[in-house]
Write a protein that binds this DNA or RNA. Structure first.
Length: 228
DNA sequence: TGCCAGGGATTAG
DNA sequence: CTAATCCATGGC
C-alpha cells in the first residue's frame, strides 16, 4: 500500500463530509435525470456566468423549438437562437457559441462519435471551439462523455482555498486540475461527477451566501479570518 | 437599487 | 505575460 498523501487525505475527508450532507439531493446533471449529451453540451454553454435556473429555461426553449440538435442549430440564424436563449443572459454571445459547438459536433461526425473520443482528444477539440474554455470543456467531457476529468470552477477554488488546500485560489486551471487528479488517483468518472455535484450543491447552499461559512458543516476546517 | 451569477474572448497595459 | 472589460438577463 502506498502512503496516502496529505492532499489525498484532505480531499477524501471533504468528499465524505459533503456526501454526508448532500447524499440524498439530486443535481441537474445526475445520470438519473436521463439527459442526453446534447442537453448537457448546450446546458454547459448556457450556464456560463448565470444560474442553472435561467440556463434551464433557455434549454427548454431550445428543446421546444426543436433546436436541441447540432444540425438544427446550424440551420437557425444567430438572431433566432439568441431569441430562444435570451433568458440565460448574453444571448448574442451564447448564440454564437452554440453554433460553434454544433459545428464541432458535425465536424466530428456526430455527437456519439465526438463523445466516444479519448479524453485528451475530446478536450482538445472542445477547447478549439469558440466559446468553450477549460471549465466548459471539462463539464462536457465529464457529464456528457463520462470521461475521467475533474472540473475546476469558482466554487471548487473557493472551497478548497478556504480550508487550506489546493495550489492557491488564483493558480492556473491546469494546476488545480492536476492537484485534484493527483489526490484522487483511484477515483473513476462517476466519483468525479458526484464530487463536483456535491461541491456545487454545498456552495450554492452555504458558501455563496455566508462569507465565513458560519453554519457550514465544514467550518471547523476553514482557516480563521477567511473571507472568500 | 445595485450587485452579481458555476465563463470566455478580446483588448489594454 | 497579467489585468481589465464586455456580454445582458433574472433574482434577491
Amino acid at each position: 500500500m502506498p502512503a496516502t498523501s496529505p492532499d489525498a487525505a484532505l480531499v477524501a475527508r471533504v468528499y465524505d463530509a459533503l456526501a454526508a450532507i448532500h447524499r440524498d439531493e439530486t443535481w441537474h446533471w445526475d445520470s438519473a435525470h436521463g439527459r442526453g449529451p446534447m442537453d448537457i453540451i448546450a446546458g454547459a454553454v448556457l450556464v456560463q456566468h448565470t444560474t442553472w435556473t435561467n440556463a434551464e429555461r433557455a434549454l427548454n426553449a431550445l428543446r421546444d423549438a426543436g433546436a436541441l440538435d447540432a444540425g438544427a442549430l446550424i440551420a437557425l440564424p444567430d438572431d433566432r437562437i439568441a431569441a430562444l436563449v435570451r433568458v440565460s443572459g448574453t444571448p448574442t454571445v451564447k448564440a454564437r457559441r452554440l453554433r460553434a459547438v454544433a459545428e464541432t459536433i458535425v465536424a466530428a461526425g456526430g455527437i456519439d462519435t465526438l463523445m466516444a473520443l479519448p479524453r485528451d482528444e475530446l478536450r482538445e477539440r472542445l477547447l478549439a471551439t469558440h466559446g468553450i474554455g477549460p471549465e466548459t470543456a471539462d463539464a462536457i467531457a465529464l457529464y456528457a462523455a463520462g470521461a475521467r476529468t475533474f472540473i475546476i470552477d469558482a466554487y471548487t477554488r473557493r472551497l478548497f482555498s478556504r480550508i487550506g488546500g489546493g495550489p492557491g485560489e488564483g493558480a492556473p486551471y491546469a494546476a488545480w486540475q492536476r492537484w485534484f487528479e493527483d489526490a484522487l488517483p483511484a477515483a473513476d468518472a462517476a466519483h468525479f461527477q458526484r464530487f463536483h455535484a456535491y461541491i456545487v450543491l454545498h456552495a450554492k447552499a452555504i458558501c455563496a451566501a455566508r462569507p465565513r461559512c458560519g453554519s457550514c458543516a465544514l467550518r471547523t476546517w476553514c482557516r480563521q479570518g477567511s473571507t472568500g
